[in-house]
């Protein structure tokens, strides 16, 4: 199960069982709902943005270990970042989970998010890992409608 340990690293299991920032915000400036019709995963992301900076971010929802851990790690990663920085982080993250298995990972830029690099060995799970990010972007873009991975 070596490949599986790559996918389900201990940090991921930990974040999926005790997700960080797992709550609604009282007064979010932005929020959106994301949905993965393939597996029924559903997530709502809440943001409080002030002066172009993510003051607070949180999520609620149900999903697999990968989608929950990814959402939890995302909230920790983007809190305190500017919107431009958050957007850059998303681009790097997406690049990592869709890259070839031997491509280099920019650990410095991605920080803790690198624990999700194992996802690239499992193409059907990429949508699980990116659901929270797509939902975050939809919230920031002010797309009130539900976003879907399909």
């Amino acid at each position: 199960m070596t490949d599986l340990r790559e996918l389900y690293q201990q940090v991921i299991i930990d974040h999926s069982r005790s997700p960080r920032n797992y709550r609604e915000l009282d007064h979010p400036s932005h929020s959106a709902e994301g949905y993965n019709p393939l597996c029924g995963d559903q997530i709502t992301v809440y943001l409080e943005v002030e002066g172009g900076v993510v003051k607070d971010v949180s999520f609620k929802g149900s999903g697999c270990a990968i989608s929950k851990a990814s959402a939890s790690l995302m909230t920790a990663a983007v809190k305190g970042k500017t919107l431009a920085e958050a957007e850059e982080l998303f681009a790097r993250f997406r690049e990592m989970v869709t890259s070839e298995h031997d491509a280099a990972v920019n650990e410095e830029a991605l920080g803790k998010l690198t624990v999700l690099s194992g996802v690239r060995e499992f193409p059907v799970r990429v949508k699980c890992a990116t659901l929270a990010w797509h939902t975050l972007r939809a919230a920031l873009a002010g797309e009130g409608e539900r976003v879907s991975t399909e």
């Binding site: 599986l4 389900y8 597996c39 995963d41 149900s62 697999c64 270990a65 499992f122």
Partner: peptide, 13 residues
């Protein structure tokens, strides 16, 4: 409380 996707992934392995 294990999500079915994770169950199926482990079974697949």
């Amino acid at each position: 409380d294990i999500h079915p996707h994770d169950v199926a992934q482990i079974l697949d392995s």
